[in-house]
Simulated scan of single mutants.
Amino acid sequence: MTGAVEAARALLSGLAGSGADHRDVERVLLAAGWRPCGAGDWAIALRSPDGVAAARISPFDPTGPYAAALYREAAHTGQVPVLFDHRRLAGGGDLQLMEWLEPAPPADADAFHRALAAETAVPGRAHEVAELAAVVRRVHERALRELPWCGPLDANPANVMRSARRGLVVTDLFYADGPALYATAATDPDIVAARIPEPERRFMTEIPLAGSGPWQPADREAMRAGLAAADARLAASQAVRKP
């Protein structure tokens, strides 16, 4: 673990118990010299001052704990990123501090995904991926049991990257079915209110949507209002049921 990561962990520990959300974490890391380096649909990324680590910060990501579990439980395979820290954030956000990774050639990424699905040797690597596949399957089955709107494994080639020390690694295999979840939130928010507690989705309208967007401000506000009304109806019905 590098000095920049240790310093970041110390700063983040100072936020513990304060109800820190994604904006607080981004502010603290930027002040410590971390710099923006990318954004996706669910999260933004910052790079450490020494260039050896990345912070993935999401306002709302139900699958974050399962990605962190995969990185920890499959660390012995050398085929997942080194995870320095993982924290859940107020409002359903997620923070992962991990080693800096570079993009992998698309052909190599496709071959890795095929090998993972078939549990066969990855081209150019001596060992097989059976152990990694077993961990992936175990963690994904847990996510499917526990998470509303959990999607299938994501075989996007961009989810295979290259570690400077260990070669190809797999990232972000688990994801929430965003189109279904957000369509339900827009058309039937009472279902979302009943299945995902408000403290775990407070910032679900603040994900970047850098790939699928843009997301119009009026649409975001309409979804917030619909969910707030659904939360009020749910609270009222629960109060009525109390003895």
Rank of each mutant, 00 (worst) to 15 (best):
P208M: 03
F203L: 13
R241M: 10
R165E: 15
L101D: 11
V129C: 13
G64K: 10
V139H: 05
A74G: 06
A20T: 07
V82M: 04
A111G: 04
A239Y: 01
L153T: 10
A176G: 12
Y182N: 12
P81N: 05
P103R: 01
E99W: 06
A111K: 01
V82I: 10
V240H: 14
P123Q: 09
A155H: 12
D108A: 14
A126C: 02
G78D: 07
A10Y: 05
A43D: 11
P36Y: 05
V136I: 07
L209P: 00
S163T: 05
P59D: 11
R162V: 09
L70K: 12
A143K: 13
A130S: 14
G14W: 08
A109K: 00
D21H: 04
R47Q: 09
G38Y: 05
G91H: 07
S58P: 10
E26M: 00
Y66V: 09
R166P: 09
R137G: 01
A75H: 01
E146W: 11
F60S: 04
L97M: 11
E206I: 01
K242R: 15
H76M: 00
V135I: 11
S18G: 13
E73K: 13
V80K: 00
A109T: 02
R23D: 02
V160L: 04
R87E: 05
Q79M: 06
A193W: 06
R56I: 13
A45Y: 04
D24C: 08
I44V: 15
L83M: 11
V192A: 06
E200G: 01
L116S: 04
A115E: 03
A236T: 07
L30S: 01
R72Q: 11
A158I: 02
